[in-house]
């Protein structure tokens, strides 16, 4: 797993960690039961504060991505299918919205986009 911290970004560091671990879990790079580094180990390796790291882990745990076993450590939680679906649905909507925003500049309407989707769908099959 890669975690890259940008100091220039407008995103707080705990949020950067949260997003990157979350996407590693969603993409399947991290699987259920995989151990995560301890908060203090990650803080040391990333050279950031312990509380910043803890906050990212707390968010991850609150949203059901990881679970903490006291005195053992943090593990990737059983994927919550409902939430995963929700998450992906949001991504899908974002892509469709982006397509619809681009469409007028090519002189296309929503109908044309739907046609294109059907065409690609056939090709994929």
């Amino acid at each position: 797993m890669n975690v890259l911290i940008r100091n220039t970004g407008d995103q707080p560091i705990y949020q950067q960690i949260y997003m990157q671990i979350k996407s590693a879990i969603l993409s399947g790079e991290l699987k259920e039961g995989d151990p995560l580094p301890s908060i203090r180990a990650l803080a040391k390796d990333l050279r950031i504060s312990v509380i910043t790291t803890k906050r990212a882990y707390d968010e991850l745990e609150k949203n059901g991505f990881i679970r903490t076993i006291p005195a053992k450590g943090c593990y990737v939680a059983r994927p919550n299918t409902e939430m995963l679906r929700e998450e992906r649905l949001q991504q899908l909507e974002a892509h469709i919205l982006a397509a619809l925003e681009l469409a007028p500049s090519c002189g296309l309407g929503a109908e044309n986009i739907i046609d294109m989707i059907r065409m690609f769908d056939k090709e994929l099959l």
């Binding site: 203090r40 040391k44 050279r47 312990v50």
Partner: peptide
Amino acid sequence: VDLFYEFTRD
């Protein structure tokens, strides 16, 4: 600063 991070591992 590296030493400080190591120190607070505990």
